[in-house]
């Protein structure tokens, strides 16, 4: 994960400017106080001569200075706060959002308004455009945080929140849930795939396509039948098939994702097999129950899932 100082969006760059002003001002105050503490401590040590120091206890002019100095800083930073906030986080208005994020225990759901695209944990976004991102939650409070994008967004059930992003360069940007949300809070990672507008359009088109109903590979075909008729389909959706569950992540293009379980493991057939064998051993607390599949069924399901590109 990149640091908060490597700004990947224009919003974060603007924010970093404010960060810099603040760090300079705070360091100046800290140095002043430290200097005064050290200077006073050394200069006015007890000399051991028993002379009582001058009993001065009021000085109105000095008090005014103590009030005035901080007030000037406060007013200055309040002005910067308001100007920066209104520049990088204006109200959403009636702008069409590029994506609606829904936090779940413990994965991310992404829906692209205006299309039927639905995906999980890895979100694709175009660079160079000012994008409105909406967020909400399906269960507890989560928080959307990609450090190099600048702003956080709390995802609260029953409410809509928003954030603006203008990504500067294509690349992979990582983030994580930043509001404690229960047992697997630590494994609720975000992966943003920022693409050029052309690549993004291609991806969106591919992601909108339904899955192939009858895969050519015979093992995968068996897996597909199991998926649709076993319990899988009551929670998971694979568009183009009978599976239309909405509780768990959409798996229509599961095979095209690079990681699984919100960043916990690389998306490999071995890991899919491990997960299907005993989810609670891989990600304890996750809402996927342990189904006692036979070894053959697991193999077929793995083959089916990994070919869903």
């Amino acid at each position: 994960m990149r640091s908060i100082f490597s700004a990947a969006t224009q919003e974060a760059a603007r924010l970093n400017r404010l960060d810099t002003y603040f760090i300079v001002a705070a360091l100046a105050v800290l140095l002043l106080v430290t200097y005064l503490v050290v200077y006073t401590s050394l200069k006015f040590r007890d000399k051991g001569n028993g002379i009582e120091p001058k009993q001065e206890s009021t000085n109105l002019r000095l008090e005014m200075l103590m009030i005035g100095g901080p007030t000037v800083l406060v007013v200055g930073f309040f002005f910067l706060t308001i100007t920066t906030t209104s520049a990088i986080l204006p109200p959403a208005g009636t702008t069409t959002p590029v994506v609606l994020i829904t936090g779940h225990q413990w994965w991310w759901e992404f829906r692209y308004p205006g299309t039927n695209v639905q995906t999980a944990n890895e979100v694709h976004l175009p660079v160079g455009q000012r994008l409105l991102v909406l967020g909400t939650s399906a269960d507890v409070v989560h928080d959307w945080w990609v450090p190099s994008f600048g702003l956080k967004m709390d995802l609260i059930p029953g409410l809509r929140n928003h954030v603006w992003v203008t990504i500067k360069k294509p690349g992979i940007y990582e983030g994580a849930c930043s509001e404690f949300c229960g047992q697997q809070h630590a494994w609720m990672r975000i992966r943003v795939v920022a693409q050029t507008p052309a690549d993004y359009a291609r991806w969106l088109q591919a992601a909108a396509r339904p899955a192939v109903a009858a895969p050519s590979d015979s093992l995968a075909r068996v897996g597909g039948a199991l998926f649709a008729h076993y319990a899988c389909s009551s929670c998971h959706q694979v568009r183009g098939t009978l599976a239309a569950g909405q509780q768990g992540p959409d798996l229509t293009h599961f095979g095209s994702r690079s990681t699984m379980l919100a960043g916990l493991l690389p998306n490999t057939p071995q890991n899919v097999t491990r997960w299907l064998t005993d989810p609670q051993a891989v990600k304890p607390g996750a809402h996927m129950p342990r189904f006692i599949f036979g070894r053959d069924s697991i193999q077929a399901l793995t083959a089916y899932l990994t070919q869903l590109k």
Binding site: L15, F22, A26, T34, V37, T81, T84, I88, K152, E179
Partner: peptide, 30 residues
Amino acid sequence: AVAFLVEFTIGGLSGIAFAIVPIDLQLTDT
């Protein structure tokens, strides 16, 4: 008490960061 003066200044200044909304939106929950 003297150590406190410097230590608490760090604590207080870091607190001001949360009052600056955009900085807070980066730092909150961390």
